[in-house]
Every structure is written in structure tokens, then in C-alpha cells.
Amino acid sequence: MDFIAILSIFVLACFVGYYVVWSVTPALHTPLMAVTNAISSVIIVGALIAAAEAGSETAKWLGLLGVVLASVNIFGGFAVTERMLAMYKKKEPAKKQLGAPRKAEGGEA
């Protein structure tokens, strides 16, 4: 693929990233950060390609180590987000009763 084509994809994705989070609820800052963190482990794709290709032992081992690190992040990141959101859900009824915004414990760090 030529450089301009990938640059176009990159720039458009930047704009999507820019607009998508503006309306985030303050209590969800930390979970959003956690899920973004998990998503950034897409670097695992690069590590998998490096680990998969024959030709260089060094590259293979660097790739495999990258796969381990990124896997920690993927599984850990999504699991942690799930835990935080579960806490938020429990707080929901209380919030409705009081009629005032209330932060979840795992909300603002």
C-alpha cells in the first residue's frame, strides 16, 4: 500500500479518536483509560508478525517477548475494565434515588 493511502487512514482515524470521547462522564475516566490501554495492545499484531516470520532468531524472540507483554495487557486490561464497570453498575440504583450524580469508587483516580 502506498504511503499516502496509509497516511489518509491514519489522519481520518485520528479525527475519529478526537471526536469519540468528548462526551465521557467524569466517573468513567478511569475505566475509559483502562479500556484504551487494553486496546493499545494492538501492538501484539506487530509482535505476532515478528514472531511468525522465519529468517531471524533474534527477531523471533523479540516478537515472542512482545506477544507475552501485550497479552498481559490485553487480558489484564479488559478484565480490569470489566471489574470497574461492575462496581459502577451496583451504584446505579442509589444514584437514581438521590437524583444527584454520584461517582463510582473506581471512578476518578
Binding site: M1, I6, I9, F10, V11, A13, C14, F15, V16, G17, Y18, V20, V21, W22, V24, H29, L32, M33, T36, I39, S40, V42, I43, V45, G46, I49
Partner: peptide
């Protein structure tokens, strides 16, 4: 690596992280 998954996702995370 000319990998669109990494470009799209990296840009998303980069931009939204900065906005956050």
C-alpha cells in the same frame, strides 16, 4: 509494517488518550 489494524487503532488510542 504497513499494517492498517495498528495504524487505525494506534491513531484512535493516540487521539482519544490526548483528548481524555
Amino acid at each position: 509494517l504497513h499494517n492498517t489494524a495498528m495504524i487505525i487503532t494506534g491513531a484512535l488510542v493516540g487521539a482519544s488518550g490526548a483528548i481524555l
